[in-house]
Simulated scan of single mutants.
Amino acid sequence: MTSTDQSPTARGSGTSATQAFRASRQEHTTGAVSAERVSSVVGRILSGVHDAIRAEKVTYDEFQAAKQWLIDLGEGGEWPLFLDVFVEHVVEDVAAETQQGTKGSILGPYYLPGQQQLPSVASLPARPDEKGTPLVFAGQVRDTDGNPVAGAELDIWHADSEGYYSGFAPHLPDGNLRGVVVTDGQGRFEISTVQPAPYQIPTDGPTGQLIEAAGWHPWRPAHLHLIVRAPGHRPITTQLYFEGGEWLDSDIAQATKPELVLTPVEQGDGRLRSEYDFVLERG
Rank of each mutant, 00 (worst) to 15 (best):
G114D: 04
P128E: 03
W157Q: 04
G208T: 02
S192C: 13
L172T: 07
Q239G: 03
H171D: 14
V121A: 12
P128G: 06
H233L: 09
P173E: 07
Q115C: 10
W157M: 07
S123P: 05
G167R: 04
P134T: 07
G215V: 05
D160I: 08
V180Y: 12
L135V: 02
Y165S: 01
F242R: 04
G215S: 01
Y165I: 04
E190M: 10
H225C: 06
G232R: 04
G232L: 05
W157Y: 14
S120F: 12
T133V: 15
H171V: 14
S192V: 15
Q200T: 14
Q186M: 12
D143C: 08
Q209Y: 10
P231W: 03
Y111R: 13
G114S: 02
A159P: 04
H171S: 15
V180M: 15
E130W: 05
H225G: 01
Q195K: 15
V181W: 05
L177Q: 01
H217R: 14
Y111L: 14
I191V: 09
G179I: 05
Y165P: 06
N176G: 06
P128T: 06
A230W: 06
V194I: 13
T144M: 09
E190C: 09
A214D: 12
G244D: 04
Y110G: 05
F242C: 06
G205C: 00
L224Q: 02
D129Q: 11
P196L: 08
T203D: 11
P221F: 09
P113G: 04
I211Y: 10
S161M: 10
T144P: 11
V136S: 10
T193P: 01
Q195G: 02
V228L: 06
R188E: 07
A122V: 02
S161T: 13
R127S: 13
R229V: 12
D184K: 00
Q209H: 12
V141F: 09
G185W: 07
G146M: 06
G244H: 05
I201E: 03
T144V: 14
G205F: 00
A230Q: 03
